[in-house]
Design a protein around this nucleic acid. Structure first.
Lengths: 222, 222
DNA sequence: GTCTATATTGGGATAGAC
DNA sequence: GTCTATCCCAATATAGAC
């Protein structure tokens, strides 16, 4: 790159700083208020830059938004790399994965991104695709791999369709709790609520797919 | 205007007709393009009325939108009154309910409303509440009642937590298929796909909660 | 690259005639 | 109740100085 190396001009660092400030401010606003409710004026003001600067870095509101979501997705991807475990008995692994999964899905940021992608999905189809690939699809792939390995280890029934079982496990986790959170009807979720849902999901999953006879008789009732 | 040649005044009928036209046009637009993408100009044009007339009937865009969603919800409510059945064996009832449920959830209109409510939920909190009450909550209540009755009839395990089991059944149905449809990644769903998911959900549910020993040995694998 | 100031359009809402 | 024509503001995007 032929940057003007004149005195008095500090080209890249400042640009990066401002750019970063814009990205952070915009992320906060979009996540807090959604896409339509946030104006470029508001972003510029929150970032402490002028609108002209903003437009110097991003070609428009949609490009800025896409950049935000992509950043967030890549971060989520690495955050979620909590690995399937085969050292513990299946129930314990399922519990651990379920807990992690639920906390991730119910985190305010995750919910906010989901809401935006769903709401604006028809206007940003490739964003919806990217979201699904980096989020749900990735998670499903991990879960499927775990199921396959457990089958191989003889701890899940040999006649199990691994992918469908994985989908079902995810479905069992995503109960009313998730829907209520997505709709904003329930703003706080306690650890006890999560534990309850996760334990019940693991129990049902193992009754359907486990090879151990029938773990605990009445432990499933409230 | 042809009605204008009446000497007197025909107050209500015309008003109703225009009002209805506005509602229908707006519904079509909102459902097809979402909330933010539709302008009042477009609604007026599509309905064949002027904006002034539009505003004579509805106080604003949000009120019009709320009216649409409420209409749609009440219609859905009656549509969904397909009743739980206790004459058939549990597996057949589950299949029938599951099929109906899936077709309902995957219908373009239902998906569109869900998308809008999720996307604009933070701006219209009472709409989100109404949606949940008339849709998911209602459906869950029906399913819970069905489970309770089946328990009473001895066809599901006596130690079953009916509400949680109902939630889980719904979760089992809502697999990747639903998410992909919501995100617009999959625009058409075949009956075969639905059947597959529903059958698998019923199988898993009955393995976990059924009292019959173990219905069909290898019928669950692909 | 960054600012201040401004251009421009889209769209929600209204005034007044009929 | 309904129309035509208009107001008015908000919000995207840009021009031009430094």
């Amino acid at each position: 790159m032929s940057e003007a190396l004149e005195a008095g001009c500090v080209p890249s660092p400042v640009a990066s700083r401002k750019r970063q400030a814009v990205l952070e401010a915009a992320a906060k606003l979009f996540i807090g208020q959604g896409y339509g409710a946030v104006s470029m004026d508001a972003v510029a003001k929150a970032a402490g830059v002028s609108k002209a600067t903003l437009y110097a870095h991003f070609s428009g509101k949609d490009a800025l938004f896409a950049e935000i979501v992509r950043n967030r997705l890549s971060r989520l991807k690495t955050d979620s790399a909590t690995v399937a475990n085969h050292a513990l008995p299946p129930r314990e692994s399922l519990r651990a994965m379920g807990q992690h999964w639920m906390r991730f899905m119910l985190a305010p940021r995750t919910l906010a991104i989901y809401r935006i992608v769903v709401g604006e999905g028809t206007r940003f189809p490739d964003l919806a695709r990217a979201f699904h690939a980096a989020g749900p699809d990735q998670g499903l792939a991990w879960m499927t791999a775990w199921v396959e390995e457990e089958i191989r280890l003889g701890r899940l029934r040999a006649d199990t369709n691994a992918q469908r079982a994985a989908e079902q496990m995810v479905g069992l986790l995503r109960g009313n709790l998730y829907l209520r959170s997505v709709l904003g009807l329930q703003t706080t979720v306690t650890d006890a609520e999560i534990d309850e849902v996760v334990d019940a999901a693991a129990e049902t999953f193992l009754r359907a797919y486990g090879t151990e006879p029938s773990p605990s008789p009445a432990a499933h009732a409230t």
